[in-house]
Write a protein that binds this DNA or RNA. Structure first.
Lengths: 335, 335
DNA sequence: GGCGCAAGCGCACACGTTTGCAGTATGATT
DNA sequence: AATCATACTGCAAACGTGTGCGCTTGCGCC
C-alpha cells in the first residue's frame, strides 16, 4: 500500500522525475531504463495517485452527472450511455441525485466544485433557477440533456419535444381519432409544455379545436397518472385516445382504464413517450414516441469531451423523435 | 476561479495556516480573526480544493460503486439508496458500469484505485473470480450487495434468496398448485441458484418431486424469458404456475403466455422476484417477492461508513424477503 | 521584577505528482 | 585539444492543503 514514484526511484537508483517520465513514455528517457522502471513499478504494485496528478495538471478526468433521480428508467438509460463513453475515454463519473430538492441540488454543485470535476452533465426536466447560475460561475463546461437553455459554457442536447407531441397526435388523428386527451406533467416542466404544444399544433392543423377539458395533470409517474385518468373519465365527454407525457404515465393510465373495465386499444387508444425498455413487453405492447436515451447519453458525453479538448465548433443538437408503432393504438370504435 | 487559501491569507494579512484553521473552526484561532477570514473567503468566492486536502488527509470522501448495469431497475433503485445516504454524510459516489465485461471490470477497479476512493460497494449478481482479489489487495473496505462472499475487508448485505424461493413456492403450493415451473438465470449466478434451492426445498417439503423438465433457462431479461416460456410450453406437461427468477423475467413470461392465448392467472399463475417499481401497475399486477432495494442501498452505505470510521463490530446482514400478494396468482383451474 | 502559562499565530514540512531548466556524460566535429 | 551537439538525468518548484512545533505576546501570580 502506498508505493509512490519516489519508492520506485529509490529502488531503481534514479530520481523520481525520471520515473515519472518513464511511466509516461517520455522520449526523454532511455528505452532500457524505461523498461526497467516499468518492470519495477509492476512488481512493486504501483498505482498512480490520480489526485496528486490532478493537482498539478489541473485536470481530474472526472465529470459530474446530476440527475433528479437515477431510479427512473429514462434517466438510468441515459446515464448508462454517459458512463460507457466516458469510460471509453478514460473519464470517470460522479453521480448526484438531486431529487429536485434545492438542498440536494446545492450540495451537489458544492461537492462537484470542490472535487474539481472537469465538466458537468445535467439531466433534469426542470432546472432550478438558482441552480444553473451557480453551476455557471463555477467555470466548467456544462451539457444539458433535454433542457435547452443557454448561457456561457452551457450546451444542450435533446429531442424535439414539440415534434414528438405532433407525431404522436398525428398518428392518433390518422387512425381517425378526434377526441384526444393529453395527460401532462406539472407545467413548470419544459418538455411537457413542448409536447403539449405539438399536440395542439397537430390538432389545429387537422381543424380540431383544442379543448382544455381534455387535458389532465399527472407528474410523470403511474400513481398520478391513474388519478388523472380517473378524473378524465369522470368528466362528461370521454376521449377515444390518450396521449401521455411519458411511458410511466401511460402505464398508470392503462392500469386505470383496465380497472374501469375499459379495453386498450379497443375502447381507448394510448400512446406513451420515451420508449423505455419494458414497454414493449406490456399488455398491450405500448405505442410510443422513441427517444434515443442511450444515444443521447453517448452524444452528451462526446460533446462534453470535445468541449474539454477545446473544440470551438460545438453545436447544440436536437434529435428527431420517432413513432414506435405497437398495439396500444387502433382506430376508434364506431359510435 | 482559483482563489486559494493563500490568496485569502494575503488578503487577511495572516499566514495560510491560520486561514486553514479558521475555516476548519479550529479553537486555535481568535474568534474575531476567524470571522474576518470566513467573511473574506465568502467574498472572494473561495471553494476548498478537495483534491489537495485529500492528498494530505488521505481521505477522499468518495466511494466507488460498481454495478453490472445501471439500466436495470433493480440496481438503480439500490444506487439511489447508496447515493442518498452517502450524500447525507458528505460522501460522493463514483459510478462504474461493468457490463459484466472483464475489460470494463478491470478498467473500473483501476480507475477507482487511482482515484483513491475510501471504499467500494459492488452490486453484481456474478463477480468475476479475478475481480474480487484485485479489489481486495487494494486495501479498502468493500461491501457486496446480494452476493455473499468472504475475504479480508469484505462485508456483504443481501436478501435471503433461498428463503425467497421458498416463500414464493410455498405461496403457489398453498393455492393448490403442484406443477410449478422455475425460469432461472444462468447458473453461474448465485442468487438464481439459491432461489432454485428454496424452490426445491419447498417442493420437497410438500412431498412433490423436483422435476428438471420444469426448469428453463432465462437470463434475467424479458426476451430470454419469452423464449424460455415458449420452450416450456412446447414440452408435454404444462405447468399451472411459473416462478420467475426476477420481475423482468416475469414480464417476459407473461408476455409469452399472452401471446400463446394463455390467461394469467386463470390458466397459469406467475410470481416474480424483486418488486421493481412498475410491476404493481402491470396487467395483472404482479405477485412477487419483495427485496427492499432502496433500503439495501442505504444499509450498504451505512455499513461502509461505519467501516470507514473504524467500527470493529460490523456484521454481514441478510434481509428477510417478503411476499407481495397481487393478482398474477390464483388457485389452479380444476382439471 | 521574574516566572510561568495560555492564547494566538507563523514556519516549514508533508502529501505525490509534473515539468522547465540546468547539469553531466558521451561521442562527434572542427 | 577544444568545442559542441546529443542524449539522458536530476534539481527544484509548483499545485493547495493540513498540522506539529516553536515563537511571540499578554497576563496573572508570587
Amino acid at each position: 500500500m502506498g508505493v509512490s514514484i519516489k519508492d520506485i526511484a529509490r529502488a531503481a537508483g534514479v530520481s523520481h522525475s525520471t520515473v515519472s517520465r518513464a511511466l509516461a513514455d517520455s522520449p526523454l528517457v532511455k528505452e532500457e531504463t524505461r523498461e526497467r522502471i516499468k518492470q519495477l513499478a509492476q512488481e512493486m504494485g504501483y498505482s498512480p495517485h490520480a489526485l496528486a496528478r490532478s493537482l498539478v495538471t489541473r485536470r481530474t478526468q472526472t465529470v459530474g452527472v446530476v440527475v433528479t433521480t437515477i431510479a427512473d428508467p429514462f434517466v438510468s438509460e441515459i446515464v448508462r450511455g454517459l458512463e460507457e463513453t466516458g469510460q471509453n475515454h478514460g473519464y470517470t463519473i460522479i453521480l448526484c441525485n438531486s431529487n429536485a430538492e434545492p438542498r440536494r441540488e446545492l450540495a451537489a454543485v458544492k461537492a462537484l466544485r470542490e472535487k474539481r470535476v472537469d465538466g458537468i452533465i445535467v439531466t433534469a426536466s426542470r432546472i432550478g433557477d438558482l441552480y444553473l447560475p451557480l453551476l455557471e460561475d463555477f467555470g466548467v463546461p456544462i451539457v444539458l440533456i433535454n433542457n435547452q437553455q443557454t448561457g456561457k459554457y452551457v450546451y444542450s442536447i435533446g429531442t424535439d419535444d414539440l415534434r414528438g407531441g405532433q407525431i404522436a397526435t398525428e398518428h392518433l388523428l390518422s387512425l381517425g381519432h378526434t377526441r384526444i386527451a393529453y395527460i401532462a406533467s406539472p407545467n413548470n416542466v419544459n418538455s411537457s409544455q413542448a409536447r403539449m404544444d405539438g399536440y395542439r399544433a397537430a390538432l389545429e392543423a387537422a381543424g380540431i379545436a383544442f379543448d382544455p377539458a381534455l387535458v389532465a395533470d399527472g407528474d410523470g409517474r403511474p400513481a398520478a397518472a391513474m388519478r388523472a385518468t380517473e378524473h378524465l373519465l369522470s368528466r362528461g365527454i370521454r376521449p377515444t385516445a390518450i396521449f401521455c407525457y411519458n411511458d410511466m404515465t401511460a402505464i398508470g393510465t392503462i392500469r386505470a382504464l383496465r380497472k374501469a373495465g375499459i379495453r386498450v386499444p379497443d375502447d381507448i387508444s394510448v400512446v406513451g413517450y420515451d420508449d423505455i425498455p419494458i414497454v414493449e413487453y406490456l399488455d398491450p405492447p405500448l405505442t410510443t414516441i422513441r427517444q434515443r436515451k442511450y444515444d443521447m447519453g453517448c452524444m452528451a458525453m462526446d460533446m462534453l469531451l470535445r468541449l474539454l479538448n477545446g473544440a470551438a465548433d460545438v453545436q447544440d443538437v436536437t434529435i428527431e423523435p420517432t413513432l414506435v408503432l405497437r398495439e396500444s393504438t387502433s382506430a376508434p370504435r364506431r359510435a
